[in-house]
C-alpha cells in the first residue's frame, strides 16, 4: 500500500500537489456549507440554519467549559472554523481514495502530519499571541515560573509536547483509518470471495471512521480552547 505524491518546487518551497488540492477542496466545502446555510437567515430557523446554530451552540459550550464567555467569545469564529474544517477534512478520505499512477491524489488532508502539525503550531502560536496581548508580557512570562521556579524547563517542554500531541493525535487517527480502509479496499478488489469477505469490515470501519473523524474534530477544538484558556485566563 505504498503511494507516492506529486511534489512541485515553487519559489523555493516544496508543494505536495495532493495536499494543495485537498486543502482547497476542504476549504471550499466548508465555505459553501457555512455560506449556503446562512443565506436565508430568519428569526425562525429551519433546515441548515438550525444545524449551523446547533454547531455554534456546541462550540459555545466547548468554549464555555474552558473559560468565561467574556474572555472566550472572541475565539468563537476560530473554534467554529476549526471544528468544521477538520471534520470535513476528516470525512473527505472516507468514501474513496483516488490513486493516479501510484500517486495518491484524493485523501484526507488531515492524514498528513505536515497539515495537522501546521494547524497545531498555528493554535499554540495563537495561544501565546493572545497570552501576551491579553495579560501583558510580564504576566505572560511569569506563567512559566508557576507554581515553582524549577518547573520552567518542564513548562517549555510542555509547549512543544502540546504542539506535537495536538497535531500527531489528529494525524495518527485519520491516517490509521485511511490506511486500514485502503488495505480493506485492496483486499476487496483482489477476488470475488475476498470482496464478499471484505464488505462487512469495510462498512464497519467506515462507520467507525466517521465517528473517529467527528471525535477528533471535537478533541482538536476542545484542546485548542484549553490551551488558549490556559494562556489567557488569570485564575490559575
Amino acid at each position: 500500500m505504498e503511494h507516492g505524491a506529486v511534489t512541485k518546487d515553487f519559489l523555493g518551497l516544496t508543494f505536495n500537489l495532493s495536499n494543495v488540492l485537498m486543502i482547497t477542496v476542504s476549504s471550499v466545502i466548508v465555505f459553501l456549507i457555512a455560506v449556503l446555510a446562512t443565506r436565508a437567515l430568519s428569526m425562525r430557523p429551519g433546515g441548515m440554519q438550525n444545524f449551523l446554530e446547533w454547531v455554534v451552540d456546541f462550540v459555545k459550550g466547548i468554549i464555555g467549559s474552558t473559560m468565561d464567555w467574556h474572555t472566550g467569545g472572541r475565539f468563537l469564529a476560530l473554534g467554529l472554523t476549526l471544528i468544521m474544517y477538520i471534520f470535513v477534512a476528516n470525512m473527505l478520505g472516507l468514501p474513496f481514495a483516488v490513486v493516479v499512477d501510484h500517486n495518491l491524489w484524493w485523501k484526507s488532508p488531515t492524514a498528513d502530519p505536515t497539515i495537522t502539525l501546521t494547524l497545531a503550531v498555528m493554535v499554540v502560536a495563537l495561544s501565546h499571541y493572545y497570552g501576551v496581548r491579553m495579560k501583558g508580557f510580564k504576566e505572560y512570562g511569569a506563567e512559566f515560573f508557576k507554581p515553582m521556579k524549577f518547573l520552567f524547563p518542564l513548562k517549555i517542554i510542555e509547549e512543544f509536547a502540546n504542539t506535537l500531541t495536538l497535531g500527531l493525535r489528529l494525524y495518527g487517527n485519520i491516517f490509521a483509518g485511511e490506511m486500514l480502509l485502503a488495505l480493506l479496499a485492496g483486499l476487496g478488489t483482489s477476488g470475488i470471495f475476498q470482496g464478499v469477505f471484505a464488505l462487512l469490515p469495510m462498512m464497519v470501519w467506515q462507520g467507525f471512521s466517521i465517528f473517529v473523524g467527528a471525535i477528533q474534530a471535537f478533541i482538536f477544538t476542545m484542546l485548542t480552547m484549553v490551551y488558549l484558556a490556559h494562556k489567557v485566563s488569570h485564575d490559575h
Binding site: M1, G4, L13, T14, F15, N19, V20, T114, I115
Partner: peptide, 19 residues
C-alpha cells in the same frame, strides 16, 4: 518521492504555507 501513505520525505514547506 516514494513514501508511505502521505508522509513525505523532507519538509513540505509549501504545504505548511498553503495550509
Amino acid at each position: 518521492s516514494l513514501i508511505l501513505g502521505a508522509a513525505t520525505g523532507g519538509i513540505n514547506t509549501g504545504d505548511i504555507l498553503f495550509q
